[in-house]
Simulated scan of single mutants.
Amino acid sequence: MVYGIGTDICDVRRIRTSVERHGERFAEKVLSDAELAVYRRRGERWPDRGLRFLATRFSAKEAFSKAIGMGMRMPMTWRACEIANLASGQPVIVLHGELKAWFEAKGLRAHVTVTDETDYAASFVIVETLEPRSGS
């Protein structure tokens, strides 16, 4: 059963302005350690690709916070919600700490998709309740 749905669109130019104004502090506030490593690798070779990566992660975390219905308040934090990729490239949500414990206690599962173009990044998240398995 659907628990919540969230969507977000982010202007990459706004992210660029934040990075120019605040430097690495902005990325360090929003990204987990694993995401930060990817952001830096991508940004070293292609600065625009790094910014789009940061924008997609920002957007996905905003969409996730909307889907769980709490916005950016505890236990939801930027760094406790990580957007990773499977080997196939599929994005997945990996939770940490109190947010992970809260999410698992509620019996929830999340699905995420992200996309970006030159100036925009967008994300869509569906959170569902896990159905108890019936014995057959």
Results as ranks from 00 to 15, higher is better:
Val2Ser: 00
Tyr3Cys: 08
Gly4His: 07
Ile5Trp: 09
Asp8His: 11
Asp11Val: 07
Val12Lys: 03
Arg16Leu: 09
Ser18Glu: 08
Ser18Cys: 14
Val30Thr: 03
Val30Leu: 10
Ser32Asn: 02
Asp33Lys: 06
Asp33His: 05
Ala34His: 12
Glu35Phe: 05
Ala37Asp: 14
Arg40Glu: 15
Glu44Ser: 12
Glu44Tyr: 09
Glu44Ile: 05
Pro47Met: 05
Pro47Cys: 04
Pro47His: 03
Leu51Phe: 05
Ser59Glu: 07
Ala60Glu: 06
Ala60Phe: 07
Lys61Gly: 01
Phe64Met: 11
Phe64Asp: 00
Ser65Met: 01
Lys66Phe: 05
Ala67Arg: 00
Gly69Tyr: 08
Gly69Phe: 04
Met72Asp: 08
Thr77Ala: 08
Thr77Met: 02
Thr77Trp: 09
Arg79Asp: 01
Ala80Thr: 13
Glu82His: 04
Asn85Glu: 08
Leu86Glu: 14
Gly89Asn: 10
Gln90Thr: 15
Gln90Pro: 04
Pro91Val: 06
Pro91Lys: 03
Leu99Asn: 04
Lys100Gly: 07
Ala101Ser: 13
Trp102Gln: 03
Phe103Met: 08
Glu104Met: 10
Glu104Trp: 08
Lys106Phe: 09
Gly107Phe: 12
Arg109Phe: 11
Arg109Ala: 11
Thr113Phe: 00
Thr113Ser: 14
Val114Trp: 01
Thr115Val: 12
Thr115Cys: 09
Thr118Asp: 12
Asp119Met: 13
Asp119Leu: 14
Phe124Val: 01
Phe124Ile: 04
Phe124Ser: 03
Val125Asp: 06
Glu128Met: 12
Thr129Cys: 12
Thr129Asp: 12
Leu130Trp: 10
Leu130Ser: 04
Glu131Cys: 09
Pro132Lys: 13
Pro132Ser: 13
Arg133Thr: 15
Gly135Val: 15
